[in-house]
């Protein structure tokens, strides 16, 4: 089912836009015919943003599933925990000092994401925080706020790069160069590979540290591997599209509803549903305020925030 949804969302993303080119003309262009304007809209504008949305969505969906398994917390979402904020602050620093986002971006973002991840999970290790899923999110929100104000300070200090930063700190998949996606691809693939390696021990971690260790796993190593994998995925995705929140929350939530809590089974649906959610959000961003576009990060927040509230308001937060 997730695969079908992905195909539908992908094709829809090519057909629908905020501009003049409607589904009919776009379909013509897609099948090889059509006029020059439609061809341009489909192949030069919508095709790259569809690919970028799919890549970013897959990375964020998988990262959310892995982070939640590692933290044993269904609310552990890269955007909420300050992982995305860490990545984007790092990129903003690069922009502010005049570096090139296209070449440096992914690597700097990964380092920032890793620091954000360590800070949030470090806070979760503090007494009392780890026991309550909601507190972890509060710690992450505090961290995100801190990093956000850091970004604002950089903006104030350096007006020259402010426009570039503003364009970039609003999460979006439109107008992103496919070259940037290609640049982040090694990072994303490395993260994906690492996820495959840690999936089994992470799944066992759901039974508790002692049981996991008793089954021949090394919990600490698995958690460390998971954090690096999340940093690679979120760092790569953030370098391409800027910070996009809630995808890592909504996607694994839906995946678990489909296949149960086991990470090994939830990974594939997360990988497929991630692009679906980002594509749907991106399509919505083109339609909601036509002929203008709403920032993608805003749309994912509109979709994701109610899910967060619903999970927290449930009689008890489900354990992982």
């Amino acid at each position: 089912m997730p695969a079908v949804l992905l195909a539908v969302a992908g094709i829809t993303s090519l057909l629908i836009g905020s501009g003049e080119v409607g589904p009919g003309r776009a379909l013509h262009a897609l099948t090889g015919g059509g006029d020059a304007e439609a061809s341009f809209a489909v192949w030069e504008l919508r095709w790259p943003r569809t690919l970028v949305a799919a890549g970013v969505g897959a990375a964020l969906g998988a990262a959310g599933a892995v982070l939640q398994a590692a933290a044993r917390n269904p609310l552990a979402e890269p955007g909420l925990l300050g992982v995305s904020a860490g990545a984007s602050t790092a990129v903003v620093v690069v922009i502010a000092v005049g570096g090139s986002v296209a070449t440096l971006g992914p690597y700097v973002a990964v380092v920032g994401a890793l620091l954000g991840c360590l800070a949030a999970l470090g806070a979760a290790r503090l007494r009392g925080v780890g026991d309550d899923p909601v507190r972890l999110v509060l710690a992450g929100a505090a961290l995100s706020g801190l990093l956000g104000s850091l970004t604002s300070i950089l903006l104030l200090v350096d007006q020259r790069s402010a426009d570039e930063v503003r364009f970039w700190t609003v999460g979006a998949v439109a107008g992103r160069d496919l070259g940037v996606l290609a640049g982040a691809l090694p990072v994303l693939l490395l993260g994906g590979l690492l996820v495959l390696l840690v999936a089994r021990p992470l799944a066992a971690l759901a039974l508790g540290e002692q049981v996991a260790a008793g089954l021949g796993n090394r919990p600490r190593r698995a958690r460390l591997g998971a954090m690096v994998a999340v940093a690679l995925l979120v760092g790569g995705a953030t370098a391409v599209a800027g910070p996009i929140g809630f995808v890592g929350l909504v996607v694994p939530f839906a995946a678990r509803a489909l296949v149960g809590p086991d990470l090994r089974r939830a990974l594939l649906p997360s990988l497929l549903l991630g692009p679906v959610v980002v594509l749907v959000a991106d399509i919505a961003s083109r339609l909601l305020v036509r002929p203008y576009e709403m920032p993608l990060g805003v749309v994912t927040a509109i979709i994701g925030a109610p899910v967060l509230v619903a999970v927290v308001r449930a009689r008890r937060v489900p354990t992982l």
Partner: peptide
């Protein structure tokens, strides 16, 4: 070691939604 020594600790806790068969299958991990 995990193929030769099994341990069932006192406070064992599984995630919501996991079935009995899922849990037992974990025993084969080593």
């Amino acid at each position: 070691a995990a193929r030769r020594i099994g341990l069932l600790p006192q406070s064992a806790d599984a995630p919501d939604g996991m079935t009995v068969a899922d849990l037992v299958r974990f025993g084969r991990q080593p």
